[in-house]
Write a protein that binds this DNA or RNA. Structure first.
Lengths: 256, 256
DNA sequence: CAGTGGTCTAGACCACGCT
DNA sequence: GCGTGGTCTAGACCACTGC
């Protein structure tokens, strides 16, 4: 024994720091409690502030900490589970405190990848509905919903030139289409400036981008791009419950 | 006129840099092409290397770049869509190149949160199956599957003391239970050292953590914690109806 | 071995929230 | 105005890859 090869791989300081801090958070701090400031913490651990910050950044990414310029660093509550609905009845008016809140609706050109999903000409304007999702008084997601004009044939149904009223009328027309299904993907992104503002984060903050395609029998009726705060959200999918018809034969295939 | 308030909000250098680089990637570089090294790039843009790195980190987070120590920085291909299966037949042997590959199975204590989901005593060992998921020759996910001993009553079915053979036998027994449904959540995390190694990333790399709970009529039969490379993966959920039409996908452009 | 990205330092100044 | 986190600099050394 003696000089067994312990610590053959020396882990980086910030990684070790993160571990130490993480354990301290578990044992010595309560949710919402504020930590000492970065300069003090760095001095206490005998590292440069940049190194300390690297550890804090990781902990914030994992949802353990919350940092705010001009205020300080606090211990974050556990991530909230946010349901990403599987059924298509999600366009109801968000009167309850837990739902989407329509902000505005305009006509604008969709970004190229969205236009492609919609199957529309990228140069042709579509309805763009902006919504915010609140959970427990906190904004957790910002969404842009793209709806081709062709999905809403009845122009007279659009009630206002702008604002929440117009947004609500677009959503109402959408609800009448009779959706056949949806298609969803989740990926990591960084918040655009406008989304960051709505989410009370700095531009570039990590977000989970949920892209949903809504189908009718005629094709794609709308595309939604929702950005969720990655630091505070855990997206939940309710696939459980009644699992189709399990007594009959299941389709033998595996989508790629 | 004259001094109109242009640039009232000066964006950070790294943010502007990121935008410039992003546009350059679109127009002047092909997928797989290697960029100049960080010191040269920093000099070219007249910034410190740390600042340049901040921009590169963001672009890597968004899946635009791929950096490898000792090698260089390359232009990343568009993110691969990885299907997170909705049906429960996902424990089939991964003979195809696109599936899970069982590595090993041991008995160990489950982490506290997992034990809670399983409804077992945290001190009681459970089966822990380790699997890797490959897509197009690249490891995209590493998984730990926790199975309470009570879910596998027939001990004689476990064929080997360790290794892939044992893992496969645990999975086989699991398949015979008749699942009733599942429950899934997705959140952002950072790769543990062991996962990072499997995924060919550095520890702390951003990952999408997919936690799945598998139900039988008796309760929770197993819990899976899968970590997907956030830089290269786009998780897809097939909630849609029938149409799985594969009009070949084009690169997704992300927020900037 | 040379060249790459990864880590670390010790400063400085800035933008923001409070009081 | 003061204290906070956010940005930025100009260095240094380390760990890894490939020749």
């Amino acid at each position: 024994m003696g000089t067994t090869q312990l610590e053959s791989v020396q882990e980086p300081k910030y990684w070790h720091l993160k571990t130490v801090l993480s354990e301290a958070l578990d044992s010595d701090f309560a949710v919402g409690e504020i930590l000492p400031n970065e300069r003090d913490l760095a001095a206490r651990f005998g590292v440069a502030r940049a190194t300390l910050r690297q550890a804090l950044e990781q902990l914030e990414l994992e949802g353990r900490l919350q940092r705010r310029r001009g205020v300080g660093t606090t211990v974050a509550p556990p991530r909230v589970g946010v349901a990403v609905s599987t059924d298509q009845r999600e366009w109801a008016d968000g009167v309850g405190g837990e739902a989407w809140q329509p902000l505005d609706s305009t006509m604008a050109k969709a970004p190229a990848p969205v236009a492609e999903m919609l199957g529309t000409d990228p140069a042709e304007p579509v309805h763009v509905v902006r919504r915010i999702r609140d959970t427990q008084g906190q904004a957790v997601a910002a969404e842009l919903l793209y709806v081709p004009a062709s999905s809403i044939p009845d122009l007279s149904a659009i009630e206002a030139p702008s604002g929440p009223v117009r947004a609500r009328s677009v959503l109402r027309e959408l609800r009448r289409l009779g959706l056949q299904g949806q298609d969803r993907s989740v990926e990591l992104g960084s918040a655009r400036a406008d989304d960051a503002k709505e989410l009370d984060r700095l531009p570039g903050a990590p977000v989970l981008v949920v892209t949903t395609r809504y189908f009718t029998v005629d094709g794609t009726a709308a595309v939604s791009v929702a950005t969720y705060r990655a630091d505070t959200c855990r997206l939940t999918f309710g696939d459980s419950g009644a699992l189709e018809i399990s007594h009959d034969e299941q389709p033998e295939r595996q989508a790629s």
